[in-house]
Design a protein around this nucleic acid. Structure first.
Lengths: 112, 112
DNA sequence: AGTATGCGCAACCATTGGTTGCCCTAAGGG
DNA sequence: CCCTTAGGGCAACCAATGGTTGCGCATACT
């Protein structure tokens, strides 16, 4: 059945700010809390908390360098997250399809 | 760019309990707060609140019948949600692919 | 009539996402 | 070498959300 795949991972990408952060990290190839917050509508501290969340589920990893902490996307883990998204989507899609087929079958029966 | 597609809709399916509720409503073809809560690890009131959320974004619709309130999935809206999931997934997937291509190109250059 | 049941409302609690303020420490410029 | 600047962590605080319990109301069942 597997509806509860990995709620931690899903809820990590569930937040719109975190999705935008992942987008930025992907396009820029990395960033710090400060650079990210400059391009987001929230403060550095908020971004830092989000980075903590993403780090805990392994979606990003950090490399301290001097007084900076550079974050980058963990591609393997993001790939896993993508897989889960499409898995849930596929499940629902299949069910919707089945429902539609049944509905059409009923219509056909009623017309005959 | 459209990373902020429809955060309302996304965050509605972002909650694990709500996803399981949608699953149940799809497989059973509908249900009430009480019947759902019987098959979920939360109370009827919690389920009722979630149903309120799903209702507000249009993912379910309700038909009052006597003292019961029967909820069912709005298939069109769920289809929209699925489309958004796969859209975000596809975006990230494309970027990961591009990064991988670049990485391989660099490797090839360094070997030559 | 009276009981049982489905539901809504309100109060309350914990967690989370957000803010501001403060302090520490590493870089950089006179 | 000292002092300023800038990145980042920590703590307090606030609002929203997901969860609970308790209660009251109205509809159905016997």
């Amino acid at each position: 059945m597997s509806f509860t795949i990995d709620d931690e991972l899903w809820s990590a990408v569930g937040d719109p700010i975190r999705r935008r952060m992942l987008d930025l990290l992907l396009t820029d190839g990395g960033g710090t809390a400060t650079t990210l917050s400059a391009r987001l509508p929230v403060t550095r501290q908020a971004v830092a908390k989000h980075l903590g969340v993403l780090d805990r589920v392994g979606l990003v990893h950090v490399t301290p360098s001097g007084r900076e902490r550079l974050y980058a996307v963990d591609e393997a883990q993001l790939a896993r997250a993508i897989a889960q998204l499409s898995s849930v989507g596929a499940t629902w899609d299949a069910r919707l399809r089945r429902i539609k087929r049944i509905a059409e079958a009923i219509q056909r029966n009623q017309q005959s």
